[in-house]
């Protein structure tokens, strides 16, 4: 059953493909018998990637059913870890590091610039659903500051010009969070 999320868009049916279900089984096999709950974080990542970049309650319930654990066990974990989005996000999620070393190297200015350029604040999504902004803590790129994570990869030594290019390129229809874009 398709479910409507709060953005009014329809989330595709909540079921992993055969290929992803195989991956789920492979992940579960990494742990001893009866310890399948250990697979929770890897599978939540898989689910978030598969189902529009965030974890809705039906998605979390689905993950619980795959692991044969109670839905509450999934909720308490999903709410603890900051990488899991509990609200819909735009197609391209830009996660800026705001911690000390980045802050000392113009992170605040770059975040400010991007907010103004996209007309949204950190924590918000553009009306066309293309971009969301998030501020996160140190991502282990302090020597290459300021920086942001977009999809699977890091974008480092950010400048205003680089942000312009990122927004132009990654705002296109074909954006794929698993690709590395040379900017």
């Amino acid at each position: 059953m398709p479910t409507a999320n709060t953005m009014g868009t329809v989330q595709s049916e909540i079921k992993f493909s055969e290929e992803k279900l195989k991956k789920v089984q492979e992940i579960i096999s990494r742990y001893p018998e009866g310890r399948q709950k250990s697979a929770l974080l890897p599978i939540l990542h898989l689910a978030q990637r598969e189902f529009d970049g965030w974890l809705s309650v039906p998605v979390m319930d689905y993950v619980a059913s795959l692991l044969n654990i109670k839905p509450i066990e999934v909720y308490e974990v999903a709410t603890f870890y900051t990488m899991f989005n509990l609200k819909p996000v735009g197609k391209c999620l830009i996660e800026f590091c705001r911690t000390g070393p980045c802050m000392h190297n113009r992170a605040d200015q770059i975040i400010d610039y991007t907010e103004k350029k996209l007309g949204i604040k950190v924590g918000e999504t553009t009306p066309d659903n293309k971009f969301s902004l998030k501020a996160v803590e140190c991502l282990g790129a302090c020597g290459y500051a300021p920086m942001a994570q977009i999809g699977k990869f890091y974008y480092e030594h950010l400048t205003e010009e680089k942000m312009d290019k990122i927004i132009t390129r990654l705002g296109q229809e074909d954006f794929n969070p698993d690709n590395k874009y040379e900017i």
């Binding site: 990494r30 250990s38 974080l41 870890y81 899991f84």
Partner: peptide
């Protein structure tokens, strides 16, 4: 021996 990679969820 088997080695597995386990991702965390963003928590210092």
């Amino acid at each position: 021996l088997e080695i597995y990679v386990q991702p965390g969820g963003g928590a210092y």
